[in-house]
Design a protein around this nucleic acid. Sequence first.
RNA 1: GGCCCGUUGGUCAAGUGGUCAAGACGGCGCCCUUUCACGGCGCAAUCAUGGGUUCGACUCCCGUACGGGUCACCA
Length: 545
Amino acid sequence: MDYKALAQLLFPDVTATAEELESRFPKRNLPEGACVTRIGPSPTGFVHLGNLYNAIIAERIAHQSNGVFYLRIEDTDNKREVDGAVETLINAMNYFGVQFDEGAVADGDNGNYGPYRQRQRKEIYHVFAKQLVERELAYPCFLTAEEIDAIREQQTANKENPGIYGKYAQKSRSLTLDEIKDNIAQGKEWVLRYAGTETDEYINVEDAIRGKLSMPRNNMDFVLLKSDGIPTYHFAHVVDDHLMRSTHVIRGEEWISSLPMHYELFSTFGWETPIYCHTATLMKIEGTGKRKLSKRKDPELALSYYQQEGISPDAIWEFLLTLLNSNFEEWRIANPEKSYLEFPYTLEKMNISGALVDLNKLRDISKDVIGAMPAQKIFDSWLDWCKQYNEQFASLIEQYPERTLAALNVGRTAKKPRKDIETWKQACDFMSFYYDETFKVFDEMPQECDEETVKTFFTKYLASYNHEDDSNAWFEKVRAITEEMGFALRPKDYKNNPEQYKGSIVHTTNMLRIALTGHANAPDIWEVSHVLGEDIVRGRIVKYC
RNA sequence: GGCCCGUUGGUCAAGUGGUCAAGACGGCGCCCUUUCACGGCGCAAUCAUGGGUUCGACUCCCGUACGGGUCACCA
């Protein structure tokens, strides 16, 4: 067989050579130790937590080493592609604060190693495919889906490994040049297969996260090019990461089993393999066990979920970082003021078993993150979120900016600031009492206070109320009314001698809280009153008189 | 089924032959307190399992169980 002729027959349009491509995409000129990483998502329209998880690792590795982090769109499967998915993806990454140095952008490419969409790299893959054919390491295969199914059935029956390899590849591999010409002339579809070798060798690959991985060497005649001429993931990954000069490949552990194919390709091309970093799959608890997060059952898998809930990107980063690097939490405690970007991230500290996504923990982290933000930042971020997800609050915030800002600072000026806000969505509930438009009374007046007591209390309160009073003066008045009405000034006194009192100061102050905020559990009454302003305070109290 | 990866409290986990087996979230209790939060203190709770190796094993080796991944012209 004349393989040069075969290569020419299969790839008549290829004129470029591998050498030309090598010089068109030269080794990057980067400082010693700089890492080049990427994420390679498929544009399916669904961006999930795992995408972000891997993106954060790749971003950290690159930027901590003054390297390059880029975005490559792996769109080789046109069946799965969804319109606008690339933009969705870029927006999501942007929202969560992942910055790319180069790669695909909404309307094209940014960088010298493109194109960054695999479908647009067809000619590049063909150069290497042609070379493989010339070297007798790839061949066209005309097997139909039915024939392949039949082979698989036979293999299953014989308890053999499924796939096209060894004797099962013989039929396609022994086609003559004329037969191939005929088939093509007849319009038969073909795929390009790698010519694997039968072997019982093992390969050893050093994974930066997992250490040594040992696997049987590839013996499969796996598909390089699909019948539309577009490469499979395996071929595209090897060509792209070589030509784009990636130093580290960060991807999910589901790829470990195809590592032998990738290793095989890197070896036959004589290219240096990148450092593989296979990350653990995110899990979820269900019943008594763990299971993989599922797109169908778990809304929290979608990144859009966190956007809709209004969980700040900072909180997501902190949360993911705690999952990613076991020493992050300790570092955070030791360095409460620093940005998480200053945390020295290392692959060695990564956990190799699947982490459970614990929404409780996320909420806790979120509370801390928001608690540490200056009020103005909370104001801005919350407003941004509301503009997209809660119009009513967006307009309230814009209508009462000063009150809102003051409200966000309630109880936060002390050394031990309150942490009332977990998410922007929840902030709308929590903050609703600050606006008459959304104010609602949720809690009942305390049992200890009948209608008459409530009325008397508020009447006295209003009569003595002076908005100019400072916190101490104000509280003295409350105490005076409390005592006057037969309520204990110290909760313990009432607890110990319930028959001597109508209740305690807990109950009188709770009446105030309920009248002013709608809840028995609320921030400091005096502070709240001064955020609301005298008119609103009097207005809410007078209703009970 | 073959191949591969994994398994420390409810969860995230530190730990690399000698530790009373860190810490965080959650739970519970106490303290602080005009409520709630915040904060402080404390408690309960873990090395999947069976064999080795060793003076000594969470740590090293082998088996078992369990969980996960993969076996496409999907990534």
